[in-house]
Structures are given as C-alpha cells and as structure tokens.
Amino acid sequence: MPIIRDGKIIEDHWLTIRDEDEIPDAGDIILSPEHALDYVAMGRRHKGRLGARIKSDANPETLGPLLDKIDLIELEFLSFTDGRAYSQATQLRQHLGFKGEIRARGNILVDQLQFMRRCGFDSFEITDKRHFKVWQKTYADLNHAYQRRAQPNDLTGIRKARAG
C-alpha cells in the first residue's frame, strides 16, 4: 500500500487486524484500542511493531496506558468534511505527548495534507488515488502560518511559526 510520508510516496507494510482476526507472528500490526489493550495485557508475543486505530468519536485519552507501547496511531476520516481527527491529533501531540507516527486514513483530499501536518500527522493513506499526481505541490503549498505548530520542540511565537 503506497502512502505519503516525509514528503515521499513510500510502500508501507502496516497490517490492519480486525478484532476477530488472529494476530500474526510477525509484521507491523494495527489493532483496535480494546484489542491492543488486551493483547498488551496478555504479554505481546509477535515480532514487529504495534499500532492502534481510533474512531472519530473516541477520546484519545482512552489509549492512555498504551501510548508508550505503540509506534503508530491511525485516525480515521469518514468524510473529508469531518474534521474531528484534527483535534484528536492535536490532543495526542499536545496533551498526551505521543511521539510516534500519526497516520490519517480514509476520505482525504490532498489539499488537506498541510492542515493535517500542522496538527501533527506524519503519514497519509489516501484511499482515492486520483489526486496523487498533485500531492507534492499541495503538500508544501503554504509556508506561512499564524499558529504555532503541533511540534513540542517548536517554541517560536504565534506569527513567526512556519508551517511544517
């Protein structure tokens, strides 16, 4: 599955595991929070990285005990007009101190990538591939922003903040 990360289109190998599926022995896997909590509580065995996906109506705080055990959090976009995940990403970065990868998945427009990046998203799995050819341009459309960005180490003031 090609995804956009760090300004590049790359092949990605994270596997989405449904709650009813068996957890494979190896590979990078994405579980639901409940599934991930159970799995971690039972002592994780598989070789590979662990990720969790949360729904638009979930509170990121419910991931609490998992946050330092997972490498990736996937946030869903049911529709490109549904902006809840922008706030979830901000909360994960700003309030919960999550340092791993935050991924956007679902109905996304490439024109939205810059907003997502500034809220703390790192990677984008875009289901509709038609717009892939212009993503690079829109990715870096705006260099200026009035708000501070969601990076813990950026302490520049409100106007001086550069989009990242």
Partner: peptide, 13 residues
C-alpha cells in the same frame, strides 16, 4: 483574525 486564519485544526468544523 490572525489566530483563526487557516487554523489547521478548525478548517472542517
């Protein structure tokens, strides 16, 4: 005005 202009979190309310 400045704070709300293209605020990345609040573009799809």
């Amino acid at each position: 005005r400045q704070w709300s202009t293209l605020h990345p979190e609040f573009a799809f309310l």
